[in-house]
Amino acid sequence: MDRYLALKSNFTDTPVLFIDRRAAQQDLHHCAQQRLRAAADLLETLTCLNFRQADTKDTTHIIQALYLLVQDGCDLLENTRIQ
């Protein structure tokens, strides 16, 4: 197994963001939790908003931010071992 795993959220031909598989499992789990919590908090905030006056680009920006947070969190969780 390679030490570094490219995040699935990389959008370039040459990945630049990686997970260090030798990092402490607790640290990987904490990073995953942090990203997923940020996504959940953003979604909670969005439930209180009215999108009738939102610009299409704003919606795209929100979706992109949520995708990055959730995908990175999932990549991190997939690389933690239950002990």
Rank of each mutant, 00 (worst) to 15 (best):
residue 6 A to R: 05
residue 49 L to F: 02
residue 10 N to M: 02
residue 50 N to C: 12
residue 78 E to R: 14
residue 18 F to I: 02
residue 33 Q to F: 08
residue 57 K to R: 08
residue 73 G to V: 08
residue 72 D to A: 08
residue 18 F to Q: 01
residue 40 A to L: 03
residue 61 H to M: 07
residue 59 T to W: 06
residue 70 V to S: 13
residue 74 C to G: 09
residue 39 A to T: 01
residue 31 C to P: 06
residue 5 L to C: 05
residue 26 Q to S: 15
residue 49 L to Q: 08
residue 12 T to W: 09
residue 48 C to I: 00
residue 8 K to E: 04
residue 29 H to Y: 13
residue 27 D to F: 14
residue 56 T to Y: 10
residue 62 I to P: 02
residue 75 D to W: 05
residue 79 N to R: 09
residue 35 R to F: 13
residue 47 T to W: 00
residue 54 A to M: 11
residue 75 D to A: 04
residue 9 S to E: 09
residue 26 Q to F: 10
residue 83 Q to V: 12
residue 70 V to W: 10
residue 68 L to W: 13
residue 68 L to K: 14
residue 83 Q to N: 14
residue 82 I to G: 00
residue 3 R to W: 10
residue 67 Y to T: 01
residue 10 N to R: 02
residue 8 K to Q: 06
residue 44 E to D: 01
residue 75 D to T: 01
residue 63 I to K: 06
residue 29 H to N: 06
residue 55 D to P: 01
residue 27 D to Y: 11
residue 3 R to T: 08
residue 60 T to F: 05
residue 53 Q to K: 10
residue 41 D to K: 00
residue 1 M to K: 07
residue 48 C to D: 07
residue 38 A to C: 01
residue 66 L to N: 02
residue 27 D to G: 11
residue 9 S to T: 06
residue 64 Q to H: 03
residue 16 V to C: 14
residue 56 T to H: 11
residue 74 C to D: 14
residue 58 D to V: 11
residue 68 L to C: 08
residue 1 M to G: 06
residue 11 F to Y: 13
residue 26 Q to E: 15
residue 3 R to G: 09
